[in-house]
Design a protein around this nucleic acid. Sequence first.
DNA 1: CGTGTAGTTGAAAAGTTTCAACACGAGTGG
DNA 2: CCACTCGTGTTGAAACTTTTCAACTACACG
Lengths: 247, 247
Amino acid sequence: MPFAPDQHATTLLIRKLESIATLTDEERQALDSLPVRTHVLGARQDIVRDGDRPTHCCLVVEGWACRYKLLSQGKRQILSFHIAGDIPDLLSLHVPTMDHSLATVTSATVAFIPHESLHTLVARHPRLASLLWRDTLIDAAIFRAWMVGMGRRSAYERIGHLFCEMYVKLEAVGLAGDHCCPLPLTQVDLADALGLTPVHVNRVLQEMRRQALLELRSRKLVIQAWDELSAAAEFDPRYLQLGKRAA
Amino acid sequence: MPFAPDQHATTLLIRKLESIATLTDEERQALDSLPVRTHVLGARQDIVRDGDRPTHCCLVVEGWACRYKLLSQGKRQILSFHIAGDIPDLLSLHVPTMDHSLATVTSATVAFIPHESLHTLVARHPRLASLLWRDTLIDAAIFRAWMVGMGRRSAYERIGHLFCEMYVKLEAVGLAGDHCCPLPLTQVDLADALGLTPVHVNRVLQEMRRQALLELRSRKLVIQAWDELSAAAEFDPRYLQLGKRAA
DNA sequence: CGTGTAGTTGAAAAGTTTCAACACGAGTGG
DNA sequence: CCACTCGTGTTGAAACTTTTCAACTACACG
């Protein structure tokens, strides 16, 4: 690997922001000198918990993370999945107390950036502030897409939609191609993300396999019939705002 | 009315931001000189449509608005409700194309603020940028709360949760009190917001009335048993971040 | 007084959940 | 190397929540 881990984190962030807008040398420099601390975490570990008041934001460098909320009787709702380049708790910069938890899904490398340095950064570089603000707005757009799914789509369409979304997100950062991507989620995870039961997820997945729409084995997803799947799920990737970088 | 309509709009915005942080005279001045154009719209009118590229943001001055997304076969998902002081399409400032529509619910007064002036404003006043950014983050927190509801709560809990949320939001801006508030939504609106059918909403409402939890007649909601309703819905208002202004 | 929107009702159907059992593979300790 | 456990995936049958469809009521408005 050409970079030391900490440098890798800032490089990743710079690349992410440059996929949206061209940065000045000064801005790139400011991002690069962000004091990040990189950690390697095991799978299924909490990073920040509901009720915490974090002092750092967390940049996913490698692996998957998710946000989730626990309810009474052990019910769990997963709110989002995050991959390399995402800053899932960027919101803690302006909303002090977490209203949900953040955890790893797989073992993962994450970089912690102090709020303090981010506040200084955005105060000095308003355009970077806008870019990060925009990032939280895209986050919200993904929430809306999930809401539409949970409110108005069948289990079948919801599962299809999530698979399309994750594939496109992974492809955009070079982690997927050929309609094939990692999908390190158990059927329980999928159920908790989609508002279904694991049993039902299982049955719908079988149906999709029977129709030769996709294969899903050992945490690897192959979408064999992209057009049919994305049509069935009414998947329109525009909400992800990948315009500039998508092929 | 003590203010000309346009002035009323900026005053409302200033009051909203001052409920979170103390503003400097300069900031207040900058907000006050924002060139807003106030319009009175009828009920059920689109303000911005899915796919549009707005040039203005819309501040709700009076009345209710909602964001929604239309799917094939006439299915509709309402994504949020907005009341006085909200800027439902603030996101258009950084994400050019709308991925959903914005419409009035009741007849409403809305003030349009050009993107241009907002961009200038946030460039000159980074703290105002942060406050507006924060606003979009609270928006996202409400989305998450709705996701939890649609994913993991029963129809009964979902309806109760929405009523608690709207009551608290209205109370925070002085439009409700005594566990009594306007609720200008039809059962069809409720259904589309909660991911249910109107018929089912109707039956659950009857159940709630039978239990003397609430009254809902002629667009007026009275929550007769707040504690029971909010407990049944597991309503915890912290996600609304009303700390400083809530009683 | 008619027309239309909103709310209500009943019965049957559908989608999804629940519960309980079993299969399979990976990892662990004896 | 086996037995054991644990997490994950799979299956079946019954139950439940919610939907669907269709009809009907109530009320506001022009």
